[in-house]
Write a protein that binds this DNA or RNA. Structure first.
Length: 820
RNA sequence: GCCGGGAUGGUGGAAUUGGUAGACACACGGGACUUAAAAUCCCGAGGAUGGAAACGUCCGUGCGGGUUCGACUCCCGCUCCCGGUACCA
């Protein structure tokens, strides 16, 4: 008899054994002919405590990695630490410990927690991004980018978060608020470092098409974020001035219908006009304070004022008034638009409000349109447009753009919403930006031989400006170019710089000669399966795609070696909820993974998180459900006892056949779940069914005994990716020649799935009226005869004439009848 | 507003993509074992309705239509919920 299932003891035993035998390491041996598989989970910020979101993420990844190993793949499954960032500084301020000390202590603690979960990471590849051996390479890349003109310093209006005391990238502003602390951001003009992601806008957009292993939702979000629009730039001369006003429009076909122009409040023309107009100046002030929140913008009243300036229509030479309007954004396009009230709803509403003329220049292909009622925004046929009359919107737009181009008053233009990535942060705990400011030479990249620029780790942040400002040893240096006195750049990198390339670094984590090793990249990248939270849909996943292309283009690897995209397949997992809400300390609804592990063991925690919901949906935490998962393991544990016990008599052949059918149908289902969509909740449910079938089966007689053993062995083997310790221990009881986690994945015995007799559902008029047991290859006549012979079915056929018989082989028989 | 996803028992969720709706689990109820409890095992269960029972009938996958022998699944029109977001000219 087996002892009682003792998770704590079993889990310690197997974790020790796996570590000792180093079973989770990926092989870089060129002689290793196994197919390779790269399974990656989003690495954690080392906050010090694992939360349920991590647990879910890593259990999903571990199940995939373990399954692939059992399928015979050479699997790379690494882990590391996204170790720079604000929480370390905040903790440092609070506890008076240097961020480095706090961070490394947390890593120790979290590493122990991950190991306690029995996750099959290749720990020899562990990286921490706050280590100079790691961040030196992004410093190196940055200096290359400076040389290529892809990294630059510029004055710009940027998002500033006061509590965080730093600027933020566009992507980090959510509803006008800081993504970290939810404080409204302030617009400030500052000199900052940028990386020219806009130079890659087109490639980032078009390569989305190859990401067919990504959720459409994420692809769509990125597409929107990049925000490509095609149209034309038009130059309107200003009356009584040499200057011209540039506008961007996606509807050049409506140019002849322009009745006014509108500029943003921040536009130089508006500012200039306000200089001697107090009323206008007050209006501009009002515009600068409007919220950037989506909901507010939606309901915001459209307002404007005339600037008292006229522009000249580029084709007709007509005078057109220029207005300032609160809905025109300085940061997009040229900060000025042409307004065509007849063909744009917003312009229509604005024109109505201020009594501006509406001039229709496009009519529908068919039918009429009452332009006094509403704007006509669809494409159509050009009218009242002089030489362009009669053209379609498409042709007209092209013709007008061509005309403008010929006359030097405009040209075709593609506009993106995406803006350059602001990467400098006024914070201490980050990778130093490798730049030296020289009074004579300007901003000079730190030469390769002087890298890394090591961040001093003994400073204590106080909450205000970065302590680097007061660290003379760091600050004062000499210019690499002229040798004169110079100062180091004191800003550090956005932490998304580190997380943008860690997946590539895992392939050669200790390479001291290069950022990545091209051979290793060729071996592993792109990542076959990436798993993480959907909150990174735009931020991290966009930056990582961009970085991958940058690294390719500075020659770190070729397209053939590393591909154009870093992640082939992406799984975005749902959140873990408690009482319908996201777990958070402030809500007090957190569940501590360690407590679950102490109570029931890691395997129970793993099993429940995978069973409770499909991976991409939110998971509602349920303590009773955890108990249920634990009970299931105990039930499987006891199945072994029946193998040892003596049983009277012998099970009949049909019963044995039915069990073998169940076993192999289960193998088929579970394998399918791993190969299509990772529906582990369903996979585990079918393993439970198999367990129930074994429980109901008495292994009496040699045949039955063999079938029972076959079933139990298959069950234990298929449980290995989910509950590896449990599976290993049971495998040992069963006498497996190798550890359960190292076994080959079971194969379906097609013979076992062949059934001589099948159950056919019989419908009359599409309604189920009974079941019949018939031979597998039953003919329509035979099936019909069997159906008639069944009293429960026959009564529905009384007085009826069968007009149609539908036989779905192996499934059902449907009889269409009508009164005889 | 626009884009995406969704709505199935008391609950989480299944349904080989047009073929037995509710697998599996949780919660619940009843029973067995026990001095008792825990643990474990067995049985029940979508709703309504008929029957003493065996068993039967009708309704049922957000709402309304449609296609089909047959619809949770496909089509058209709605309602509500959840994510994302750009007044983007």
């Amino acid at each position: 008899m087996s002892d009682q299932y003792d998770a704590q003891q079993i889990e310690a035993k197997w974790q020790g054994r796996w570590a000792e035998l180093n079973v989770d390491a990926a092989s870089d041996d060129p002689a290793d002919t196994r197919q390779r598989y790269y399974c990656l989970v989003m690495f954690p910020y080392p906050s010090g405590n694992l939360h349920m979101g991590h647990v879910r993420n890593y259990c999903l990844g571990d199940a995939v990695a373990r399954y692939k190993r059992m399928q015979g793949y050479n699997v790379l499954h690494p882990i590391g630490w996204d170790a720079f960032g604000l929480p370390a500084e905040n903790a440092a301020i609070k506890h008076g410990r240097p961020p480095a000390e706090w961070t490394y202590a947390n890593i120790e603690q979290m590493r122990a927690q991950l190991k306690r979960l029995g996750l099959s990471y290749d720990w020899s590849r562990e990286i921490a991004t706050c280590h100079p051996d790691y961040y030196r390479w992004e410093q190196w890349l940055f200096t290359r980018l400076m040389e290529k003109g892809l990294a630059y310093q510029a004055d710009a209006e940027v998002n500033w978060c006061e509590p965080c005391h730093t600027v933020l990238a566009n992507e980090q502003v959510v509803d006008g608020q800081c993504w970290r602390c939810d404080t409204p951001v302030i617009r400030k003009n500052l000199k900052q470092w940028f990386i020219r992601i806009t130079a890659y806008a087109e490639e980032l957009l078009s390569d989305l098409d190859q990401l067919d292993g990504w959720p459409e939702k994420v692809v769509g979000m990125q597409r929107n974020w990049i925000g490509k629009s095609t149209g034309a730039e038009v130059s309107f001369a200003l009356d009584g001035s040499d200057e011209a006003l540039e506008i961007f429009t996606t509807r050049p076909d409506t140019l002849m219908g322009v009745t006014y122009l509108a500029v943003a409040a921040g536009h130089p023309l508006a500012v200039q006009a306000a200089a001697n107009n107090a009323e206008l100046a007050a209006f501009l002030d009002e515009c600068s304070t409007v919220s950037t929140r989506e909901a507010d913008i939606e309901t915001m009243e459209k307002k404007g004022m005339p600037l008292g300036v006229d522009a000249i229509h580029p084709v007709t030479g007509e005078r057109i008034p220029v207005w300032v309007a609160n809905f025109v954004l300085m940061g997009y396009g040229t900060g000025a638009v042409m307004s065509v009230p007849a063909h744009d709803e917003r312009d229509f509403a604005f024109a109505r409000k201020y009594g501006l003329p509406v001039k229709q220049v496009v009519r529908p292909q068919q039918g009429a349109w009452d332009i006094d009622q509403a704007a006509f925004t669809d494409p159509g046929v050009l009218v009242d447009s002089g030489m362009f009359d009669g053209l379609s919107s498409q042709e007209g737009g092209e013709a007008i753009t061509a005309w403008l181009s010929e006359h030097g008053r405009g040209k075709a233009r593609v506009q993106y919403r995406l803006r350059d990535w602001l990467v400098s942060r006024q914070r201490y705990w980050g990778a130093p930006i490798p730049v030296i400011h020289c009074p004579d030479c300007g901003a000079v990249p730190v030469p390769e031989e002087q890298l890394p620029v090591v961040l001093p780790t003994d400073l204590r942040p106080t909450g205000g400006a970065s302590p680097l400002n007061d660290c003379d040893a760091f600050r004062h240096t000499s210019c690499p170019r002229c040798g004169g006195d110079a100062e180091r750049e004191l800003d550090t990198f956005d932490t998304f710089m580190e997380s943008s390339w860690y997946m590539d670094r895992y392939t050669s984590p200790r390479d001291a000669t290069a950022m990545v090793d091209a051979e290793a990249m060729a071996r592993w990248v792109p990542v076959d399966q990436y798993i993480g939270g959907v909150e990174h849909a735009v931020l991290h996943l966009l930056y990582a795609r961009f970085y991958h292309k940058l690294m390719r283009d500075v020659g770190l690897f070729t397209r053939e070696q590393g591909g154009d995209e870093p992640f082939r397949n992406l799984l975005t997992q749902g959140m873990v909820l408690k009482d319908g809400a996201k777990m958070s300390k402030s809500k007090g609804n957190t569940v501590d993974p360690n407590a679950i592990i102490r109570r029931h063991g890691a395997d129970t925690a793993r099993l429940f998180t995978l069973f409770a919901a499909p991976p991409e949906k939110d998971l509602e935490w349920n303590d009773a459900g955890v108990e249920g998962a634990h009970r299931f393991l105990k039930r499987v544990w006891r199945l072994y006892d029946k193998l040892e016990a003596q049983h009277e008599g012998a099970a009949d052949a049909a019963t044995v056949r039915a069990l073998r059918f169940a076993i192999h149908a289960t193998i088929q289902k579970v394998t399918h779940a791993f190969e299509h969509g990772f529906a582990f909740n369903v996979a585990i449910a079918s393993l439970m069914e198999l367990s129930n079938a074994l429980q109901d089966f008495t292994p009496a007689g040699a045949q039955a005994r063999a079938a029972y053993r076959e079933g139990l062995e298959a069950l234990v083997t298929m449980l290995a990716p989910f509950v590896p310790h449990f599976a290993c221990e049971m495998g040992e009881l069963l006498g497996f020649e190798s550890m359960a986690v190292l076994r080959a994945w079971p194969e379906v015995d097609e013979q076992a799935l062949v059934q001589d007799e099948i159950t056919l559902v019989v419908q009359v008029q599409g309604k189920k009226r009974g079941e019949i047991s018939v031979p597998k290859d039953v003919s329509e006549e035979q099936a019909l005869a069997a159906a008639r012979a069944n009293a429960g079915i026959a009564k529905w056929l009384e007085g009826m004439q069968i007009v149609k018989v539908i036989l779905v082989p192996g499934r059902l028989l449907n009889l269409v009848v009508r009164p005889a």
